[in-house]
Amino acid sequence: MRKPMQSILGILTGTAIAATTMLGVAMAKPGNTECIAPAGAGGGWDFTCRVPAAQVMGDMGLINGTMAVTNMSGAGGGKAYAHVVTKRGDDENLIVAASMATAARLGQNVYSGFKASDVRWVGALGADYGAIAVHKDSQFKTLGDLITAMKDNPRRTAIVGGSSAGGWDHLKVLILADKAGISDLKAINYISFDNGGTAMLEILSKRADAFTGDISELVEYEKKGNIRILAILAPDRIPAVPSAKTAKEQGYDVIGANWRGFYVPKNISNARYNEWVDIVTKVANSSQWADLSAKNGLAPFKSFGKDFENFVGGQIGKVAQISTDLGFMK
């Protein structure tokens, strides 16, 4: 038997250790707002979390304290979607970056059976138009060159992108190929990477032949002169990269608008949902965001609350139809 004094001392030591060690554990989760970027850092979703959400919301004082950004890559956003639906369903302080890619995946029903109605859609605050790029030394000088190669030798024309197979980056190429009259769309050699950033390394190293992604992922590399943008999938040229031709100019009438926005967990209170809608609206209309989005190759694109939910529903229907038409989905 120990003497009582010794036991008390023992317990005190124990609590002291507990206190110091638990300060460590405690860091696992912040109590304040969080934005999940469903891909690794450096890509489009990451940008949506870090700039309009964490930075602008913080600067404008729309949220308490600052926002933590969590990168949760995997399955073209499916991992984060499943996480939010199954584990964070009532987290009032959570928003998640979403984009056309999210809608595309939902349209193809590849989020393990999760539906668009499993979350609530807050709003979109900009759009990033699709782009096709190649290494600066590439043999492909125009979009037509690339399409010819895809027609003649699809297996040997590797195209990389930041979405998983069947995701938005992949779909853009398929839609373009379809427009160009390529019949065997499944033969097109698309390779999926965690995000646009890592996919870009494949171009820089010349392992891959072409990159499909969004303009904002390309601006820096274009300025540095590492790559050549073959086409942008926008209605008109974009000020951030004025020299890049649209696909339409080159005879392929394809527009791929990747809107950027947010969703929140389904079971939060209506009041909080409206609060988030209000916050996102304010960010979208701010001059700070106008400036930042233009710098990063984003075009204006606004839709909020109920309108946005309807818009997303429509997009999902469209993708489902395209995917079926292309023989990509049963």
Binding site: M1, R2, S7, G10, I11, G14, T15, A18, A19, M22, L23, V25, A26, A28, K29, G31
Partner: peptide, 27 residues
Amino acid sequence: ANWKQAILCSVILSLLCLLLFDHLLGI
């Protein structure tokens, strides 16, 4: 541990843990 030690140790450590997470850090 004997009963006294067990109870004392459990109550103190658990309370401390709760205080730290729930009250101070909001987890």
